[in-house]
Amino acid sequence: MLDAAGELAQHHLAQWQAEDLSRDHRTDDAAVARAKRQIDAMNLMRAELVDRVDSLIDDSLPADPHASLHTETLGQLVDRLAVAWVRSRRLAEVAGRDAALRSDARRAMTLLTQLCDAYDDLLRDLRDGRRRLPAWRTLKRYGTTR
């Protein structure tokens, strides 16, 4: 699962850069189109990685059908953690001496920390049988006709 989480973080970092490029008013239309196709390919890989995390958990974690249902899968939560990590890192990199950007970077770090705490809480609840995960598989496949 850690490998998939690391790959998710790398995908989100590359996607952040591709999205920055696609939104830059100096980028020509052909480069924007290439970036958008690249983003679709990254979203497809991201969805596959989320499904891989969920498959690993489904195979190893018995669920009590009477436990309270969590709103997202563990793969989806790991994906959000990866996004939060990239956001926090990127905002910290550009903050410099700009007070507003430093404030955004601190807020991003706070959100990442809160999400990490929620992840830890969920793992304890799953282990102790207080929570169960939804049965979910990605249905949207980016960059395909499906």
Rank of each mutant, 00 (worst) to 15 (best):
R102H: 06
L56P: 03
M45I: 12
R46I: 12
L2G: 15
T73W: 05
R23N: 15
A67I: 02
H70F: 14
L101S: 09
Q17K: 12
R23K: 11
D20G: 14
L122F: 13
Q17H: 15
P65C: 12
V50E: 01
R26Q: 11
D98Y: 00
R131W: 03
D28Y: 08
Q15V: 03
R37H: 05
D98G: 02
R97H: 10
R137C: 08
S60V: 07
T145F: 09
L115H: 06
S60C: 09
H66R: 14
Y142F: 11
Q38V: 14
S68Y: 09
R146Q: 13
L91I: 02
L13M: 07
T110R: 13
M45H: 08
D121C: 10
A63V: 08
A47K: 01
R132Y: 06
G6H: 01
R37M: 09
E48L: 12
C116M: 11
R124E: 14
A118S: 07
A5L: 11
L81Y: 06
I39P: 00
A33L: 07
H12S: 03
E72M: 13
A118N: 10
V94F: 02
A35K: 00
Q10N: 08
Q38E: 14
D28Q: 09
R127T: 12
A99T: 07
V83N: 03
D59Q: 12
A31S: 10
D51F: 06
D98N: 12
V83W: 05
A31Y: 04
A82F: 01
R52H: 13
Q114E: 15
A108D: 01
K140P: 01
R87M: 00
V94H: 11
H70D: 07
R89E: 15
R124K: 13
L61Q: 07
S22I: 06
L77F: 04
E48W: 01
Q114N: 14
A108R: 04
A63Q: 15
L91D: 03
T27W: 07
L126N: 00
L69W: 03
V86P: 04
R146Y: 11
L112E: 12
G143M: 07
R23T: 11
P65R: 04
D24T: 04
A118H: 13
A5Q: 01
R37T: 05
R34G: 04
Q38D: 13
A5P: 00
A4C: 08
R37I: 03
A118V: 08
D117V: 14
G143E: 04
A41S: 07
T144K: 05
T27L: 00
H12K: 06
M42P: 08
L111Q: 15
M42E: 12
T110H: 13
V94R: 07
Q17D: 11
W136V: 11
R131G: 01
L69M: 11
C116R: 15
A9L: 13
L69R: 02
V94Y: 02
L69Y: 04
A47H: 06
P62H: 03
T144I: 02
R132F: 05
R102C: 10
A30T: 09
S68E: 14
K36L: 10
A63G: 07
P65M: 08
L111F: 06
L91W: 08
T138Q: 15
Q10Y: 04
D79E: 14
Q15G: 06
D58Y: 06
H12M: 02
R26M: 12
A84W: 00
T113L: 10
E7K: 11
D51E: 06
P65A: 10
M45E: 11
R141N: 09
D51Q: 00
Y142T: 03
D120Q: 09
T138R: 08
A135K: 10
R34M: 08
T145V: 12
